[in-house]
């Protein structure tokens, strides 16, 4: 059982750490939204692993709250980004291209 503990928590922790790396590095806000979503799902999975390994049903209601929070958070941030520059000066033209578009343009130039 100890081996299962280490394996399960090790894999969950590795996934959470890599999601945190993407959360810190992510070039755009949407990358961070995706990383946060994945991080919350991994946290919910960790709680469920704890509940299953310890036979401890007290954290099960927390799972419902965490999954609700992940959905509401990602949808609200996505809608926020969707209407973000409606009130910016000069219709957002001063902000420039997003980074993915710059990468695509650089790749086209390379080709």
């Amino acid at each position: 059982m100890t081996v299962v503990y280490w394996l399960a928590y090790g894999m969950l922790g590795g996934g959470a750490m890599l999601a945190l790396v993407r959360l810190g590095r992510g070039p755009s806000l949407l990358d961070r939204v995706v990383a946060t979503d994945t991080l919350l799902v991994i946290i919910a999975a960790g709680l469920a692993v704890h509940a299953a390994l310890e036979r401890d049903p007290t954290v099960v209601p927390v799972l419902v709250v965490v999954s609700l929070l992940a959905f509401v958070g990602s949808v609200s941030v996505a809608r926020y980004i969707g209407g973000m520059l409606l009130s910016s000066a000069d219709d957002g033209q001063d902000v420039g291209l997003p980074e993915a578009a710059e990468e695509a343009r650089a790749a086209e130039v390379d080709r």
Binding site: V4, L7, A8, Y9, M11, L12, G14, G15, A16, M17, L18, A19, V21, R22, V34, A35, T38, V41, I42, A45, V49, A52, L53
Partner: peptide
Amino acid sequence: LLLGALLCLTAGIGL
């Protein structure tokens, strides 16, 4: 449980 944890790890690597 181990399969689910492995999927979480692959999600992190893919991210």
